[in-house]
Design a protein around this nucleic acid. Structure first.
Lengths: 91, 91
DNA sequence: TCTTCATGTAGCAAATGTACTACATATGAT
DNA sequence: ATCATATGTAGTACATTTGCTACATGAAGA
């Protein structure tokens, strides 16, 4: 069964929605690229469960970025900040 | 149940044994750093099953390398080759 | 309005990850 | 010879992931 409410604090953080938006992909498209069910992408974006390593690797490959750019144990800084904002402490 | 014989071709490749050896860590030590059971590390090194994303991230963190340096969907080139061998095609 | 597409919610069934315990073997040190 | 450590094998139990199906909603367009 899925988590109906994400009451627990997240096990991981993801840039999936951002990266997908940047590429103008729907979940369905990304899912097909990664070879998974399109609902699975939704569950990941909503943090309803955390993926397996191979799924995460396939997603990163489909987005053409290293895995650490998509998933992390610690929160991501906004990419805009990283690019344009000197104040951005986190990487 | 675990895979007794790795008859299927691997879902992923790992440098875990090499990296662990370089650091002179036992599986037990690494397991404690990553917060998992020490048998779990063994299963991963033998390719008996593939980890969850968070476990993989914790292991990479314990080894102080990016995840892509430890796990990959495609085979790794030897680090020695990468460092000393111009012929090394793969990264 | 009707249709399509993207997204959310709900549930079930099957596969898999992880912890844990126990035991076997090899190696190195004392 | 004994002991400790590192590693492999086996098996059980439980939680979680994943695929899949179905239905609801909202937005965009014809």
């Amino acid at each position: 069964m899925k988590k109906q409410v994400p009451d627990e604090q997240p096990q991981f953080y993801t840039r999936l929605p951002v990266l997908r938006a940047e590429r103008g992909m729907s979940r369905k498209e990304l899912a097909e690229l990664a070879g998974v069910h399109y609902q699975t992408i939704g569950y990941l974006e909503r943090g309803e469960y955390s993926p397996s390593l191979v799924l995460a690797l396939r997603i990163a490959a489909a987005l053409a970025v290293p895995l650490d750019a998509v998933f992390s144990l610690t929160p991501f800084a906004s990419m805009a900040d990283q690019l344009y904002n000197t104040e951005g402490e986190n990487r």
